[in-house]
Amino acid sequence: MKQKRALFAIKTILWVSALSPGVHLVISLLRGSLGVNPVEKLTLWTGMTALVLLLSSLAITPIRRISGWNLLIKLRRPLGLFAFFYASAHFVIWFAFYNIFDFRYMWADILERRFITAGMAALLVMLPLALTSTRWAIRKLGKKWSTLHRAAYLAGTLGVVHYFWLVKADTRLPSLFALVLASLLGFRALQSRAAARIKLQRSSNQGRGTRFTE
């Protein structure tokens, strides 16, 4: 019961905080309070929100491991899906206003500009992850699902690179994102090394008598 209430509480917090940037943007847009260049603000804030949510989804596992609070795993899927939602909005705004719905402009942008190449790649990597986030897909894919969803790290990396290449001069914020990403990847790497060692020990225990040469 206590568990259920806690889950409801953290899910509510997540929904409210993930939806509020979008609601705020829509209201500001309707009120005309996004300033002289509204499209620039819409683009910046949808992109920023997508990246923050994507990195948050990647942070769930490390935080869970460290804190031992397993309930957090329930937040990973909604975080990832919200990230995909904002990334898609970011893409649509770019396609609609910057490329005025013209595929030729879009292609030229993707091919010629590396920061757009990276951003587009990030969105494409996120697409199959979003599509296979249903319970049915998880069951159907089994072990392959975990392997596939490790691509979230690739999406995160591409997203940070996209932001880094975009910024002209003040790299403080993209550097912060890069630092967060690096520590998440670092944690993951340490963990899989530890896991590998455990696996190695187990197998050597099983194969007692046989010699291991490296």
């Binding site: 002289v36 260049n37 509204p38 499209v39 609609a96 206003f97 910057y98 490329n99 005025i100």
Partner: peptide, 10 residues
């Protein structure tokens, strides 16, 4: 270019 305060880069 976008002629501000316009929305589209047209």
């Amino acid at each position: 270019e976008t002629r501000l305060p316009g929305f589209r880069k047209d």
